[in-house]
Computed example of a mutant assay.
Amino acid sequence: MLHIHALEKRYATGDRALKGISLDLAPGEIVGLIGPSGAGKSSLIRCINRLVTPSAGQVAFLGRDMNPLSGRQLRAARREIGMIFQEYALVERLTVMENLLSGRLGYTAFWASWFRRFDAADISRAYELLARVGLAGMENKRADALSGGQRQRVGIARALMQQPRLLLIDEPTASLDPKTSRQIMRLLLELCREHQLAAIINIHDVVLATEFLPRIIGLRSGQIVYDGPAAGVDESALTRIYGDEDWSALTQRMEPAAASPHRAEALAPTAALAVASS
């Protein structure tokens, strides 16, 4: 589904955010992206959907090279890539329903969207998604009246309004308390499984990542230094990703996550597709 080869990103300041990144993502596969601040995690996500233009290398999505696309072709490709932002990126003065329907702007004629005239099927789907993410009855609330967890749920539902094939998720739990963080991660996995979506989740919480996500990619200084199963994220792997530190306390917290059922659930879409294609 997603093929990245020798991806480079150098900013105008001269900083090299990405240095020869290569990875593949299968349909329905869910991956956790971890690493220290400045490792290039957000740059990688933004290069995939061309919010940032790569300096070199290839990003191929559904067999199509994203790098040369522009204008209408790029907008069409982005329809199939849903983005969920750390700071939610909601329009604060708009209602929950209006924020959700903005996820259909790529499919809606300009004047229809200008006057907020959306298709009845889109409105019906928005109600269904609101119920699915636990926000039924909140469609007329303004976004600025919501809690952090509720805002994140709106962001998730808005991304699903695009009917994407791939989700790019940037720090979905950064501003949330531990209980809400776990609820959001569980919801993301359930929705990916239900809709057979692949996902790349940029996440700082290593314990949460290894509990919920079957495959972990660790970045350091713009390079992949770990790509493997969550169970393999031990003290040695953490040192490669983050540097020297006493990781014993953290790995002890990660041990109960090794038996987590969430990982098996996250693997389900890929396994199902493999069986179907065999």
Rank of each mutant, 00 (worst) to 15 (best):
L267V: 04
G106L: 14
G148M: 12
A121N: 09
G35M: 07
R220A: 02
S43F: 00
E98G: 03
M161A: 03
L105M: 07
I123E: 13
Y11R: 08
Q58R: 15
L90D: 03
G218F: 03
V275Q: 15
Q163Y: 04
S277D: 08
Q196I: 09
A237D: 09
D170R: 10
I200R: 04
A131L: 00
S102K: 02
T251Q: 02
N140H: 12
A199N: 00
S260P: 00
I84W: 05
R193Y: 03
G63P: 03
L18C: 01
S22I: 11
L90S: 00
R240A: 15
A264D: 13
S278Q: 07
L25K: 01
E190F: 11
R220V: 01
V154I: 14
E92R: 15
R193Q: 11
T210K: 09
S22N: 10
A249K: 11
R153D: 01
E194L: 13
L18R: 02
R186G: 15
D234G: 07
L129A: 06
W114T: 12
S236V: 08
E255G: 03
M97P: 04
L167V: 04
H3W: 03
N49C: 10
A174N: 01
L69E: 02
G243P: 08
E255M: 08
E80K: 15
G35A: 02
R50Y: 01
I200M: 12
R75A: 15
L69Y: 05
I81S: 04
V154L: 13
M66G: 04
F110S: 01
R132A: 13
E8V: 02
I200D: 05
A89M: 07
C192L: 04
G28P: 10
L208R: 13
A12K: 14
G38F: 10
R104P: 03
G14R: 07
W111T: 14
I203M: 02
N99F: 12
T270I: 10
V59I: 08
L176D: 06
L219E: 00
A264R: 14
P178T: 09
E80F: 13
T53R: 07
S22D: 14
K141L: 12
G38D: 08
S124M: 09
R158N: 12
L101C: 04
V206T: 12
I217Y: 00
A237Y: 12
I21N: 05
E235I: 08
Q152N: 06
K9A: 01
Q152M: 08
L208C: 13
L213Y: 11
E265F: 04
L101H: 05
T270F: 06
I21E: 08
L135N: 12
D177V: 06
G28I: 11
W114V: 15
Y242T: 01
L187K: 06
I169L: 06
A12H: 14
Q150K: 10
I203A: 02
E128N: 05
H3G: 01
T108S: 10
L187S: 05
L130M: 13
M97R: 13
S221W: 02
A121I: 11
R16S: 09
Q196N: 14
I224Q: 07
I224E: 06
S277Y: 00
N49T: 09
A159N: 04
A268F: 11
Y107K: 11
F115R: 15
P36K: 07
L273N: 06
Q150L: 13
I21H: 09
D15Y: 12
